[in-house]
Design a protein around this nucleic acid. Structure first.
Lengths: 188, 188
DNA sequence: TGTACATCAGTGAACGCGCGTTCACTGATGTAC
DNA sequence: TGTACATCAGTGAACGCGCGTTCACTGATGTAC
């Protein structure tokens, strides 16, 4: 059946959105195209009217997730205490408990590194975030401090998600949040 | 065929060793039992003479990797400047380039968090490392600082592995190493 | 304005493949006599 | 010491399953006349 002018573009976007959520929540390898299309009320065969392969979807969905996160970051950075707000948001239990809506780095970076050739979009995401953080720092080693901050953010969020003990999980978030905000105060 | 008394124990250990390397290098989901057994010169059917399931192997191999890393850490901590040595080793290009011999956290934590129920062994590994770091710090907030240091170590190593640009990868390792050593100096 | 036709997003069966797991079996060795 | 037997680590074919991908097809809609 033929659909209205922008129907295909809408379906395309729905696939990308659902994929970017599932890749972040379940991982790339554990996300099947069949269940994904079924969740959208479509059959799996139609997938190839939109993408050449799963790899192409991975690229597109990773780019979408990266851009989506940039927008979320900008909201935090628009507040009075930009870096403090960003740190609070990033290391919140809400972010920890909703990986499908959050930063793709803690969930996908390891898997992307293990795949044959890593994607330049990871670099893009890392550089985006580094530039944004460094821009708010007044210290002369702002670039280096930004790298350390991002590493701590990504590492703490991933660790808080992977431990079983809820108290340990919270302790990781709280300690990292506290230390980073002190560092941000000193360098900002 | 029947083998000498400790033959089975030796095979068991060979499987665990090979699995703990592959899980760290390729991830759990991407590691097949068939290729794993073949690499050891065995057929896949024999696997179930040693383990109830792949999940049981994951538990055993993760425990082995965690214990193996503890030994490597102890070597670094036995040197004159314990924490400095540990940081240097952890954030070295050698560690980045040999995930199969290194810390399981940057490679497996995300995947373990995504699986149904996370393993208590992850908690064990995190607590082990935290305790070791905190013990070398004299600051009163040693426990909190240890959490931040571990987060930075794990995050920086994972990021350095997942970016495509070799210069960015090195920059991440170098910045994190420098900052952590300063922090260790101040708190140690 | 009304009708015939071309388009093409989506359908659903089928493909080969590798996965984790099962199972009847083999055959070299340790043990019992 | 020599022989018959029990053991059981490892074999390899087979299982059902879900994966990514292909492809002949459908049928509602936009377009041409």
């Amino acid at each position: 059946m033929r659909y209205s002018a922008d129907h295909k573009a809408q379906t395309h976007e729905r696939i990308v959105k659902e994929a970017s959520a599932r890749f972040r929540r379940d991982g790339i390898g554990a996300t099947g195209l069949q269940p994904l299309m079924k969740a959208l009320g479509l059959t799996h065969g139609g997938f190839y009217a939109h993408f050449k392969s799963k790899d192409e979807l991975v690229e597109t969905a990773l780019r979408a997730a990266t851009e989506e996160l940039t927008e979320v970051c900008e909201k935090a950075f628009a507040k009075p205490q930009p870096l403090q707000s960003f740190i609070d948001t990033y290391l919140s239990p809400a972010h920890r408990d909703s990986p499908e809506k959050g930063c793709p780095l803690p969930t996908m970076a390891a898997e992307l590194g293990q795949r044959g050739q890593p994607s330049p979009i990871t670099d893009q995401g890392v550089e985006d975030r580094l530039a944004r953080i460094a821009a708010t720092l007044k210290a002369e080693d702002a670039d280096e401090q930004a790298v350390v901050m991002l590493s701590t953010l990504v590492g703490a969020l991933m660790l808080s998600r992977s431990v079983e003990d809820p108290q340990l999980s919270l302790r990781i978030l709280d300690s990292a949040r506290k230390a980073l905000k002190l560092q941000a105060d000193a360098a900002g």
